[in-house]
Computed example of a mutant assay.
Amino acid sequence: MGRYVLQRLLGMLAVMFVVVTIVFVIVRIAPGDPAAVMLGPDATPQDVAALRGRLGLDRPLLVQYAFFLAQLVRGDLGESIFLNQPVLSAIADRAEPTFFLTLFSILIAAVIAIPIGVLSAYKRGSLFDQSATTLAMLAASVPSFWLGLLLIQFFAVRFGLFPVSGYGGPGASFMTRLSHLVLPAFALGIVSSALILRFTRASMLDVLNDDYVRTARSKGMSEFRVVMKHAFKNALIPVLTVIGLTAALLVSGAVVTETVFGLPGVGSLVVSAVLRRDYPIIQGALLVIAALYVLINFLIDMLYLAVDPRVRY
């Protein structure tokens, strides 16, 4: 097990090193002078030169890269040009809505998809199976922002059950802020449930006809125990994989949904940074999102150990 964990940790470090290098290169090879773009057309050459010196863009490329790596080792992602605060602090201030939105979306998707996927595989070829598969394909093709607008129209505007947008005031309670996340979480969760449902169904179909399942039935076990204890547990690894990938995609893909619902999350921060050409924010957000991708994949790998002891070998 120790060797397994060590291999995954070394893999994480290698991936992050590649991501850091790519992010560094992309920002430096982008067309135009980043300092001139950030300051706008009215900036004087002296202002551009001063900003280039502040950002270290006047140094040789290898020196910039070494300085960039040294900053990352210290946990320093730079300072936002327009917010006048450290990038890590700016991202941390916006992390709460994005974190809870992603968490609730995944929970909603899993609660919807896993039971339906298991039952659909168990009733393969039935009307329920065909209906579930059709609805999953339909949900996968629906844009989350369009579904979000529909939810706003019906549950916020027409019935007044939930807030239209925002995240509550500075002193809002957790329950108040939670009420602002219900609609966007359902918009993302319903769309994300389609992929999880299809993977759950396919994985269950692979194991339901295996010998150990027939043996469990021949011993007189109840169908519920056979399906959930023997079949589902052995079909869980692909399901965990797709849930992890979905969570990683939601972290970076909730930009449009956060914009539709006016949530002050990381997505809206990145959108405003792109519009204002705030390169330190864009660069820092890319690194943080990539780090979350890698971390989520690592946690999924660790869950494999709990689900299937054979992974240790």
Rank of each mutant, 00 (worst) to 15 (best):
T257E: 14
I243A: 05
V271H: 09
V182E: 09
V191Q: 09
R198K: 01
F159Q: 09
L236G: 10
A136F: 11
V207S: 06
L195Q: 10
I237W: 13
F261G: 03
I152R: 03
L205C: 03
V256Q: 03
A273I: 04
S203C: 07
G148V: 05
L181R: 09
I237H: 02
T200P: 14
S203I: 02
P170W: 09
R217F: 15
G265K: 01
S218Y: 13
S193Y: 05
V142Y: 05
F159W: 11
V227Y: 13
A132N: 00
V207M: 07
L269I: 04
Y212H: 07
S165T: 08
D210S: 15
F186Q: 00
I190V: 12
S252K: 10
V271I: 05
G267V: 06
S141N: 07
F224K: 04
V226L: 10
A216Q: 08
F199M: 14
S222F: 12
A202V: 05
E223W: 15
V213E: 12
G220N: 00
E223K: 02
T241E: 06
F232L: 03
L205Y: 14
D210P: 13
G169L: 09
L181K: 08
V191T: 11
V226N: 12
I196L: 12
A156F: 08
I237N: 13
M175P: 15
K233W: 09
V242K: 08
S192T: 05
Q153Y: 13
Q153I: 00
V256W: 12
V271T: 09
A185F: 04
G244Y: 12
A235P: 11
L151G: 07
G168D: 10
M228C: 07
T215K: 04
S141A: 08
G253F: 10
I243S: 02
G189R: 00
A254N: 14
L161N: 05
L188R: 01
F174S: 07
S218D: 12
V271A: 11
G168T: 00
L263P: 03
S268Y: 07
V271Y: 15
A235C: 13
S193F: 09
R158E: 15
G244V: 05
S203R: 08
L161Q: 00
F155S: 03
M221K: 07
S165W: 06
L236P: 02
A254Q: 06
N209C: 02
V227G: 13
L205I: 06
R214C: 08
S131L: 13
V251T: 06
G267P: 12
P184S: 08
L181N: 00
K219E: 14
I196E: 07
G160R: 01
N234K: 08
A136Y: 11
S272T: 06
V164H: 04
V266L: 12
Q153V: 02
L138D: 02
V260W: 09
G148K: 07
D210H: 13
A185E: 05
G244R: 01
L150T: 08
L195Y: 15
M175E: 14
V270E: 10
P264H: 12
G160I: 04
G244P: 11
R198W: 15
G171R: 13
M204V: 11
D206T: 04
L205V: 13
F199I: 09
P163C: 08
A247C: 06
L151T: 02
T241P: 01
M175H: 14
S192K: 01
F155A: 01
S131C: 10
L138C: 03
F199D: 05
S268H: 01
D206K: 00
